[in-house]
Simulated assay, not measured.
Amino acid sequence: MELHLIRHPRPDVPAGVCYGQSDVGLAEAPDAVAARLRPILPARFVLHASPLTRARLLAAELGSPLLDDRLKEMHFGEWELRPYAELGPAIDTWVTDPMGFRAPGGESAHDMSERVLQWLDALLANAPADPVVVVAHGGPLRAIAGHLLGIPAERWLSLDFACGHAARLDVEEWGVVLKWFNR
């Protein structure tokens, strides 16, 4: 299966603000990002997307997406829309346990990855004949790519998906090949 992973366009959020599942707007026009991506995508594909506006608007420019809540970004609870500088020493705890830490009222990266990988398992169990394009967020895309490539979860943060860019993985019976990243 040919799998294209696209991170949403740049959000309209000040630098240094935690936005997770907050439904923020875009600082980049989704039609312009879609026009730039179309030449590197296959002519036909099955399209999946997060329902959050920043992913959904780009996906709608690319086709008719199947929206799935499991593709949403990590929920940061009380940290949503707060500057990281205001979060105090809790940030240090997050740094020491990036997969297990949970912001108050939110979910951990482990929780987020479990729901995303449930989505991936369902996709792989019923893999369509056509290529698959996914428009989502940095966290879920790291979980998908990291898992498929066999990267330990604590290293998934090293997969830095750029806003408005795509990666391609070919999922074969014998393994997964990263064809390109951040195009």
Rank of each mutant, 00 (worst) to 15 (best):
residue 158 S to D: 15
residue 83 P to N: 08
residue 170 D to W: 10
residue 108 S to Q: 05
residue 164 G to S: 11
residue 147 H to D: 14
residue 55 A to V: 13
residue 111 D to S: 11
residue 71 L to H: 05
residue 169 L to D: 03
residue 155 R to G: 08
residue 85 A to R: 14
residue 165 H to M: 15
residue 73 E to F: 00
residue 78 E to G: 13
residue 122 A to M: 07
residue 118 Q to W: 00
residue 80 E to V: 07
residue 81 L to E: 08
residue 61 E to Q: 15
residue 73 E to Q: 08
residue 155 R to K: 14
residue 147 H to I: 08
residue 148 L to Y: 06
residue 171 V to C: 12
residue 93 T to P: 00
residue 68 D to G: 03
residue 120 L to K: 05
residue 170 D to C: 12
residue 163 C to K: 07
residue 59 A to D: 06
residue 152 P to L: 05
residue 126 N to M: 00
residue 86 E to D: 15
residue 152 P to K: 02
residue 68 D to R: 00
residue 162 A to Y: 01
residue 170 D to F: 06
residue 94 W to G: 04
residue 79 W to Q: 00
residue 142 R to I: 06
residue 89 P to I: 12
residue 165 H to S: 12
residue 99 M to S: 10
residue 161 F to I: 08
residue 141 L to M: 05
residue 128 P to W: 01
residue 113 S to R: 14
residue 125 A to D: 13
residue 117 L to N: 06
residue 70 R to H: 05
residue 78 E to V: 06
residue 161 F to L: 11
residue 82 R to V: 07
residue 143 A to G: 04
residue 129 A to M: 07
residue 96 T to P: 00
residue 143 A to H: 08
residue 88 G to N: 02
residue 143 A to I: 07
residue 143 A to K: 04
residue 72 K to S: 13
residue 80 E to T: 14
residue 168 R to V: 07
residue 112 M to V: 04
residue 64 S to P: 00
residue 126 N to Y: 02
residue 132 V to A: 11
residue 61 E to D: 04
residue 89 P to R: 11
residue 131 P to M: 08
residue 144 I to E: 06
residue 69 D to R: 04
residue 120 L to R: 10
residue 109 A to W: 11
residue 110 H to W: 13
residue 129 A to K: 09
residue 73 E to R: 00
residue 156 W to T: 09
residue 156 W to P: 06
residue 61 E to H: 13
residue 151 I to N: 08
residue 137 H to W: 08
